[in-house]
């Protein structure tokens, strides 16, 4: 494989995959520790109705209205879960189940029954994404990386995911101490004068932003997998939060690269033509990593 083939066809998708994986894994560490791991699952389901409604209102398949619609749907979902939980005194898991399935069902129905056949918008795309199609046609080889004209032709998902990743990382870095303390001992954090309520909400919103930005590029499976699998595997490797975050980033990058490569070239190695879904393969690899950590990880047992 030469640079002239790798740079336009494989470099952008794998970089996007890495950005998505890390941007989701970072907040995922806290979600897993706070037992809110399924927030990612809920958000990625409700993004669909948000996008469909945004399309019906704006009439175009443009990025900005869709991102706004998806973000709006995520906020509506979080509010609805809270509302149902409080009004009906229902446990959070069940309230979440009610809200995200209903919103997803509404989204599917709207999609099937409105005139979206002319545009590229369907349920399968929302679920699986299409990472492989994000290629960089202007590139001719490694030299293009330093070529301003060619760089302008990069798939827009790459800079957008990179910015999202930086934003998420900044949020975690700035609020590191309050996040850490409130995750492990919420009561103590409150006695120290931290506002744990808004902080928890901010964490959910940052996760939602990461999920929505990633969703557009790669579909929702990868988002759920990256929120949970790398942090969960990292959790089995260490008892220190700093080390755990480092492990989770490493696992996320490993899953993204190995998944993308196996999806693209794996079938060729065993004599098939074509390739398989990169998003699905990345999720599968993150599961393999979690499986290995669950069997071999040094801290896999509960502390006794």
């Amino acid at each position: 494989m030469t640079g002239s083939e790798f740079v336009p066809l494989s470099l952008p998708p794998s970089l996007i995959g890495i950005c998505v994986a890390v941007a989701c894994a970072l907040p995922g560490n806290f979600l897993v520790l706070r037992r809110q791991a399924l927030i990612g699952d809920a958000i990625s389901h409700v993004v669909l109705p948000g996008i469909v409604v945004a399309f019906l209102i704006s009439g175009v398949v443009a990025k900005l209205p869709m991102l706004l619609g998806a973000a709006g749907a995520a906020v509506v979902a979080v509010a609805a879960i809270e509302l149902i939980r409080r009004l009906g005194k229902i446990e959070p898991g069940a309230a979440m189940g009610v809200v995200f399935t209903t919103m997803f069902a509404g989204g599917v129905l709207l999609l099937e029954k409105s005139d979206t056949s002319s545009v590229h918008l369907d349920v399968e795309h929302a679920l699986f994404g299409n990472l492989e199609s994000l290629i960089w046609l202007d590139a001719t080889g490694w030299s293009s990386v330093f070529d301003i004209d060619a760089l302008a032709g990069l798939p827009v998902e790459l800079p957008r995911m990179a910015i999202t990743l930086i934003g998420v990382a900044l949020f975690i870095a700035i609020f590191w101490r309050p996040l850490k303390i409130s995750t492990f001992d919420e009561g103590f954090a409150r006695t120290m004068g931290m506002r744990t309520g808004p902080l928890g909400l901010a964490l959910v919103i940052v996760s939602a932003i990461a999920a929505v930005a990633a969703f557009d590029a790669v579909g929702s499976i990868i988002v759920i997998a990256m929120f949970i699998c790398p942090p969960a595997a990292a959790r089995l490797m260490t008892n220190r939060l700093e080390t755990q975050v480092a492990w989770s980033v490493a696992f996320a990058i490993l899953a993204a690269i190995s998944g993308y490569m196996i999806a693209g070239y794996g079938p060729l190695w065993i004599g098939f033509h074509g390739s398989v879904s990169a998003a699905g393969m990345i999720a599968t690899m993150s599961g393999v990593i979690l499986g290995i950590a669950a069997v071999k990880g040094p801290h896999r047992q509960r502390a006794t």
Partner: peptide, 22 residues
């Protein structure tokens, strides 16, 4: 393992589904 049930649910859900898509 020390993972809570919700993390286990999310992991199994996404990994199996991802493999299914493959």
């Amino acid at each position: 393992t020390r993972l809570a049930e919700d993390a286990a649910i999310g992991a199994v859900l996404s990994v199996f589904f991802g493999f299914g898509v493959v």
